[in-house]
Nucleic acid binder design. Structure first.
Length: 193
DNA sequence: TGCCCGATTAACT
DNA sequence: GTTAATCGGGCAA
């Protein structure tokens, strides 16, 4: 039986949650698939939206774990995060890429695109394909329209620097399924030695 | 109050 | 490689 991810799963170190989300199933109104890429953010680190304190936009990040934080990126796209750790820690995991498995026709329709590989390969694309907007900011992740289930088996998880940021760009806080075709960008191969 | 920039994407050259 | 689309926050004035 698939294990439903509830609040205790998210009420842990944001890096542990990020790693354990790789391979988990993420559905929104029954549409979605397997999470293959995420990034961790924490309020103690300058690339996080929560770094400069609470505002109306990022308020959900400061609330309890297990909720969705949705924000507008570059004035155009929506991006979804899962709030982690304890209330007030203002940490979250950004969902960056999903391997489509459920509702592929709906995702293609919303994205206006046939190539399955690009349907959910990027944080803005994930939200467009699944139909997530600011209307869903602050919703609980363990109840409809969300449905998250743990991965069944261990899988190889790659790490690397986060994408598209300038602050704290050296932190290896990006996590992904090693070798997946559905990443927004491949992970650099481990250094040869 | 105004100005710049960003956890992005797609459509250019 | 470059650029437009377009909005909230931070910071200077």
């Amino acid at each position: 039986m698939p294990r439903l991810l509830r609040r205790p799963f998210f009420a842990r170190d944001v890096h542990a949650v990020a790693r354990d989300l790789i391979g988990a199933t993420f559905l929104f109104r029954g549409v979605g698939g397997r999470i293959v890429e995420v990034e961790a953010y924490h309020h103690t680190e300058p690339a996080a939206h929560s770094y400069n304190g609470q505002t109306p936009r990022n308020a959900v990040m400061f609330g309890p774990p297990g909720y969705a934080y949705v924000y507008r990126s570059y004035g155009i796209h929506w991006c979804v995060n899962f709030v982690c750790e304890e209330e007030g820690s203002a940490s979250a995991v950004l969902i960056r890429a999903v391997e489509p498995t459920e509702g592929i026709a709906a995702m293609r329709r919303r994205r206006g695109l046939k190539d399955e590989r690009l349907l959910c390969a990027g944080p803005g694309r994930v939200c467009q394909a699944l139909g997530i907007t600011d209307a869903h900011n602050g919703l609980a992740l363990d109840a409809p329209p969300f449905a998250l289930t743990a991965r069944a088996e261990d899988i190889p998880v790659a790490t690397g620097p986060r994408i598209g940021i300038t602050q704290a760009a050296d932190l290896p806080w990006r996590y992904g399924l090693t070798g997946s075709r559905f990443l927004s960008k491949p992970f650099r191969a481990p250094a040869a030695r």
